[in-house]
Every structure is written in C-alpha cells, then in structure tokens.
Simulated assay, not measured.
Amino acid sequence: MKAATYHGPGEIRIEERPEPELEDPKDAIIRVTHTAICGSDLWFYRGEEEHEPGSPVGHEPMGIVEEVGEEVRHVQPGDRVFAPFAISCGECEFCRKGLHTSCVNGGFWGPHGGGGAQAEKLRVPLANGTLVRVPERYADDEETLESLLPLTDVMATGHHAAVSADVGAGDTAVVIGDGAVGLCGVLAAKRLGAERVIAMGHHEDRLDIAQEFGATDVVSARGEEAVEEARALTNGGANHVLECVGAASSLETAAEVVRPGGNVGYVGVPHVESAAFLAPLFYSNASFTGGPAPVRNYAEDLMDDVLQGTLDPSPIFTKTVDLDRVPEGYRAMDEREAVKVMVKLDE
C-alpha cells in the first residue's frame, strides 16, 4: 500500500509499505478514505522535533472498516468510522475519567509510535475504545463526512481549549492563534455560549474565517501592541483565554491578556525554551490548564451537533489533495498557503 513517511526536515515521501494485518483480537483494519495534515505535523516537518527517517505520519483517520479481530464488538466490516489522534481502551482509570489521552493501554498515531493515518490502510489497536462509528444514514454523505473529519483532532482540540478555559454562556473569550485549532476554538467558544469572542492572529484570510465562525472582534497586531489591543477590548483582560499555538510568544500573550483569577486553556503543543510566562500567571492567580485533547470523550457530543447541522468546522480545509500529493500539502501549510489540508483517497 502507499503511505506517507518522514525523511528529515522538509521531506515527506510516498512509499510502498506492507498492508497492515490484525495482530491482536482487539484490532481492526480500516481502509482510509479521508485524512488530513495537522499544524502539529509542521513541528517535525520544520525540524523542530526529531523522528526516525521512514517514520509513518498522520494522525487524523477516517475510513471504512475492512476487518476486525474476534474481540471487537463496537464496529463491524463495512462501517464508516473515524478515530481520534490518540488510541485508547475505553476501560482504564483514565478513560473512565474522560482522559483518554492518558490511557494506560493506548498511544498515538504517526511518528509517536502507532501507524500513520496518511496511508491507504491503518491497523487500529483497541478498536472498541478508539473508533467512532458514523451513523449509517450519513456514511456516504460526503458533505457530512468532511464536516466530521475535523473531529479527529482540531475541532475537539479547540473544544478542549474552551472547556479548559471554563467558557460558558454570556462570557467573553480570547482565542490566541488563527490556525485550524484556533479557528475551531472560536467555534467551540460560541458553541458553549460565549457572547463575545476575540480572535488574535496575523493572517487576514484566517481572521475572516474566524469571523465567519462567530468571532465578534479580531486583533491582527503583533507583540505588545496586540496585548494592549486585547486588554483594551476586554477592559483589562479576559477571564477565559484559549491558547491554541504552543509557541513561547503565544503563551506569553495568554499570560498577559488573562484577567487576575481567570482561566487559560492551553492546547498548543508547547515548544518553549523558557517558562518565564508562568510568573505572570502565578502573580495573577490565573489558572493554566489543558493539554492534549481527550478527543474520544468529546466525539459523540460534537458529532451530534454536526449531524443536526449546528456545527460545521469544514471551512478550515482550504486545500484538498490526494495521497500522492501529500508532500505538496505539507509545503502549502508550511508556507501558509493553506489553513489545513484535507487528504481524500479513492473509495
């Protein structure tokens, strides 16, 4: 089968790999029909994370079940499914708490250990706990499937930022970052009832999508000017701040725009050399909570809204490629020519 693999900074190749096989009674094999390239994939693409050459890549799979192990009961061959970026059993202490990214039996796709989702097929360990089944009536509805695909990661991650920031009805929220996660954070904050959502970013086209998603204000300035503008818009700071990047500058911005006693929900994978941003949080008694989104905990709830037509994150996909053009998709995201790239495979 064809699969995308990592071969050093700036080099993604499409290679022939052996088709996956069942290795455990709890496994399933899916034929991937849709997947995506994530902003977090750019960390290794840019050489800011180290991975072995030849590592599989991709962590946002959607497809059709082809084969299941004898202990799989939740899905069957022919089902349309999607999977979060984390593998989880659904039964351990942390899964029962809704913290599936800390599953004691699980792991992650891509270079982090599991198979890569940017491939024609994928072995899914712990299929009963990991896979989310799409109701049969929507299984061939392409428009719906494209709206569901962001639930594998970025929509649920934006939602996790909003939940961690304690966003509720009537609140004012500040969303830092205009990538796919930040844009989904805007959607999530509105979904949870925020009356005012201020989107902070540097790209006009992305901030236009933020406004389409419900942002009431946008801040496009940089550095201290952006902080001052956000603080002016919130009368000194916001109680609910969503940090959706993970860079030192965005974490520092979050620490400066949160109101004393407020909440920062952080979901950007942190890439920082200094933890100096923690001092302002400490002295303002602001909470700082978040981490990798437990997508599996949110999946059905978010899917219900997509299926009833009240949630549609699909506009984050501004470019679509087939599997052979995945390297082109990485380049487009790296050069800011695309917000997020969808990968569609032949069915």
Rank of each mutant, 00 (worst) to 15 (best):
G214F: 02
T172A: 11
R31W: 05
P56F: 06
L122W: 09
Y6P: 11
V197Y: 06
V241N: 09
L183A: 08
H7D: 08
P280N: 07
E224L: 06
L192H: 05
H112D: 06
P77R: 02
P20Y: 07
I64Y: 07
V326A: 07
V264N: 11
H202I: 05
R46F: 13
A189Q: 10
S55I: 01
I87E: 07
E66M: 10
Y283Q: 03
V219H: 06
Q118W: 01
A293W: 00
E252M: 07
L192P: 09
D171M: 09
A254P: 13
C103M: 00
E328C: 01
V132H: 05
V257Y: 12
E120D: 09
A226Q: 11
G115F: 04
G63Q: 10
L149W: 06
M303V: 05
T5C: 14
P84V: 01
L233Q: 15
E335A: 10
V72I: 02
A161E: 04
L311A: 04
H112P: 01
H100L: 00
I64Q: 05
D301R: 07
R46E: 15
S88V: 01
S314F: 12
I29H: 08
V272M: 07
D305E: 14
T253I: 04
M1R: 09
A180W: 11
V295S: 04
M200N: 09
N285P: 04
E143H: 13
P150M: 00
E143S: 14
Q76N: 02
I64H: 03
E91Y: 04
P315Y: 02
T157C: 02
E146L: 14
S88I: 00
V241G: 12
L126P: 03
S220L: 04
D79A: 08
P77H: 03
R13K: 15
L148C: 11
D324L: 03
V339Y: 02
A162R: 08
Y6R: 01
